[in-house]
Design a protein around this nucleic acid. Structure first.
Length: 428
RNA sequence: GGUGACGUGGCCGAGAGGCUGAAGGCGCUCCCCUGCUAAGGGAGUAUUGGCUUUAAACCCAAUCGAGAGUUCGAAUCUCUCCGUCACCGCCA
């Protein structure tokens, strides 16, 4: 959520910045609603003050034994008027809230301007796509030939876009997960274990709700009496539970930056992606991810984004997987993001770079919703800046290892960094 | 799941319709006193919004787990929900 004060005072500047990311701000609607809000709020508060004063008078009169009947008569109509004013005020505020909740973050000054994916900017490239003296296969072919990948079983158990991994492939996924967690721990990230089911407040905090309900799996409680808003959701990313650890908290400045890492499954409905990446592990309803989350001081956050990017890159480098870093343009960054770097790994099976990590700076956009603040000494609390990034998407890393380390005979060489996690095995 | 107790500031803890944004204590900050240490004295110490402003103070409103209700007036009474604790049941 953007700062309401900023929206009031610099509406046109905000609108211009949002336009670069393809969002048209209805400035007229906001202006007129804000004007109404002011009127209604002042009116309601004036009535409240009046009521408070008179009620206090009644209390005193009663205490000193005076007749309070005339005073009561005086206040008689106040209640209704107050109720009306309060409702009008709340009404407008709800409308404003609604509009504000749907406004995306302002792009960072360093985010390239552009309309869509094609305008993203390559920042750097690492490694060289391997030279195969045979036709490289894609991961599905490789894994199926070994009996490591059972799509039919997954469909039988659940539905399309789920997988059953077997034997060495399942172990390789576990090895990758542990490898990543160890790397991040060594770099000073605290490992955390979190709930994979979250409430609505958490999803609002990180910005998935109210706008992106369709992408989420909602869990109904199976209780016909339960008519309130206690619905729970499967997490679409570890970002949600991990960032929400500090919701409503005020952090001592000496405890910043806070750096956390967590391994979680992620659940996405992938509504609207029919027909894309239908084969294999690239796009699943359930996948594993190791996430990094960082809370930082505002003045450190831009650097923190670069640091997180390098941290994610270090995983790919240790694994020897060629990749490139893309700075997403204004038209392609996510709703809550101010700036995003994507890591794209080379997949020989597709002869293409594919997204394997997304690292984003949210500035105070999430923190405002989360009410995550920090305090210097006795000063007033200020909003922190939040960041997160995949480090990495484990399923896609698994794909990348299979495809980049395949041999002509269909076997897979185990990257050096992973061998300790597989009992020293060098080839699968 | 059942029964009972309970959610008050950074923490502990009083309050049980009005004089309570909230006694008292601890902690913390500043000042005084003090050879050192220990002790003592004084002042301050929540958040959000409105208004004003260069900024702040002042002023006003809201907040005693959350929401709704009763009342001229709610931390206090009623209802719903969430959570904590104890005992019982079940369970990896």
């Amino acid at each position: 959520m953007l700062d309401a004060k900023l929206l009031r005072s610099n509406l046109d500047t905000v609108a211009a910045k949002l336009k670069t990311r393809g969002f048209m701000l209805d400035t007229q609607a906001i202006q007129s609603l804000e004007a109404q809000r002011k009127d209604f709020q002042v009116a309601a508060q004036t009535l409240q003050a009046e009521r408070n004063a008179k009620s206090k008078g009644i209390g005193k009169a009663k205490a000193s034994g005076e007749d309070i009947a005339p005073l009561l008569a005086e206040v008689a109509s106040l209640g209704d008027k107050l109720k009306e004013a309060e409702e009008a005020s709340q009404d407008v505020q709800a409308k404003i809230e609604n509009i504000y909740a749907g406004i995306p973050n302002l792009p960072h000054a360093s985010t390239p301007i552009g309309g869509g994916e094609e305008d993203n900017v390559e920042v750097r490239k690492w490694g060289t796509p391997g030279d195969f003296d045979f036709e490289p296969k894609d991961h599905v072919e490789l894994a199926e030939a070994k009996g490591w990948f059972d799509n039919e079983a997954a469909v039988k158990i659940a539905s399309a876009r789920f997988s059953v991994l077997k034997g060495p492939m399942a172990k390789l996924q576990r090895a990758l997960t542990q490898f990543m967690l160890d790397m991040h721990s060594d770099a000073g990230f605290e490992e955390v274990y979190v709930p994979f089911i979250v409430n609505q407040e958490s999803l609002r905090g990180t910005g998935q709700l109210p706008k992106f309900e369709a992408d989420l799996y909602k869990i109904s409680k199976n209780d016909e009496h339960d008519t309130n808003d206690r619905d729970l959701y499967l997490i679409p990313t570890g970002e949600v539970p991990v960032t929400n650890i500090y919701r409503d908290d005020i952090i001592d400045v000496n405890d910043l930056p806070i750096k956390m890492t967590s391994h979680t499954p992620c659940f996405r409905s992938e509504a609207g992606s029919y027909g894309r990446d239908t084969k294999g592990l690239i796009r699943q309803h359930q996948f594993e991810k190791v996430e990094m989350v960082q809370l930082s001081k505002p003045e450190d956050s831009a650097q923190a984004l670069e640091d997180l990017t390098l941290q994610a890159e270090s995983i790919l480098q240790k694994l020897g997987l060629p990749y490139r870093v893309m700075a997403l343009c204004t038209g392609d960054i996510g709703f809550s993001a101010s700036k995003t770097n994507d890591l794209e790994v080379w997949l020989p099976g597709q002869q293409a770079y594919r997204e394997i990590s997304s690292i984003s700076l949210f500035e105070d956009f999430q923190a405002r919703r989360l009410k995550t603040r920090y305090r210097i000494g006795q000063d007033k609390p200020q909003l922190v800046h939040t960041l997160n990034g995949s480090g990495l998407a484990v399923g896609r890393t698994l794909v990348a290892v299979l495809e980049n380390y395949q041999q002509a005979d269909g076997s897979i060489v185990v990257p050096d960094a992973l061998q300790p996690y597989l009992g020293g095995v060098t080839k699968l």
